[in-house]
Design a binder for these strands. Sequence first.
DNA 1: CGCCAAAAAGAACGGTCATTCTTGTACAAA
DNA 2: TTTGTACAAGAATGACCGTTCTTTTTGGCG
Lengths: 208, 208
Amino acid sequence: MSGQVTRTRILRVGLDLASAEGLCRITFGSVAGRASLSKGGVVAHFPHLDDLKRSILDVALDLWSRTCLGVDTGVGNGLPSLIRYLNVWIRWTRRAGLPGSCPIAQAIVELSFLPGPVREAAAAAESVWRQTLIMLIRDAIDKRHLLQETDVAQLAWDLLGIYLSHHVSTHSLRDPDADRKAQFSVKRIVASLEVINEGAAHPRQGGQ
Amino acid sequence: MSGQVTRTRILRVGLDLASAEGLCRITFGSVAGRASLSKGGVVAHFPHLDDLKRSILDVALDLWSRTCLGVDTGVGNGLPSLIRYLNVWIRWTRRAGLPGSCPIAQAIVELSFLPGPVREAAAAAESVWRQTLIMLIRDAIDKRHLLQETDVAQLAWDLLGIYLSHHVSTHSLRDPDADRKAQFSVKRIVASLEVINEGAAHPRQGGQ
DNA sequence: CGCCAAAAAGAACGGTCATTCTTGTACAAA
DNA sequence: TTTGTACAAGAATGACCGTTCTTTTTGGCG
């Protein structure tokens, strides 16, 4: 078997495991078992466990990119693009076929107090997410869809927060309504910053 | 030495360690060392590690209660009480003298995929938080400070989300501005649901 | 076929951990 | 002082883990 093929299989299995149980559950043994390999077989490809974990985060970010920034989710149309991106982002793990949660979001929290290269990789992914949000927000402002005086960093923080809340709510608190609640939050926060045309009444939060 | 005193010392050390490095870092050895005890000495008080972890979450919730629901943070004054609670809640670990993050918030995420009694304890604490928020929100609605048609569960979800975002932002992403951003988010969401008196203009997000 | 390099298997080592068991110690009552 | 009891120390066990090492297998090429 070609080494590349095996390496890819290891990473796919590792990504699934990280999605299902978190990056901290990644061990040589757990990945080897699910990949029908021996421990040594995995180590041959990733001499240090951190290499494997970093690579798993890399493929996770790559999968996120292909899922959320693909051509069909066109970017550059201002507010509609931002809203479409948020809707896709919140469900991207399902759309990408992952069995559980977002490995990056989980890793960001799990590694809070564990400095090292894996933590750096998770932080880097978060930075990519933040920059993506900022880019979309700026575009929406440029196109006069969002208020000129919008605090870009604050709005990006809020939207990233909704993503993290949705992650926790779905996979830890098991709230079956998390999707709807997250969408509602997005709608409300966007509405409060949207440029209002045609004198339409500003919608406020309605009853449950 | 009385057993009760030692037990209390174990729990204090465990709480500090959980705050500084997360509940998953709690081991008999790590707690014993910091408490100047032998491993067996700790085991004598908590035969199973889960007992120790559950007890640590219990004292954490107890400390939260004394810090955030104390008499000086008077409850029952409607919206001002809610806002005061949120401001205290977000910083409660510092106010309570804990060395790091909120052990409960961290545990909720860490235990996402690890069923068992510890996970249940963390989920129970989250439920207490949620009920506290709902109580305060309902009071603010009753007192005509928040709109009658406010979606209570949704607003509680949003506020819990801001708390979690603030937790992640502070301790994992090391954003020195997390406090201010969380406060801003609270202000914005409350403003969008507040009953407006005296025809005051509705404030929108300003800034950079 | 034999040769060779890559790939994978498998054994082994040192470490940490939860858990159990036995031993030692301090202290109160008899 | 002797006894009994709660408390803590400490050794031992078995499991898992990361890492290193050696051995076996595989597949392509002469």
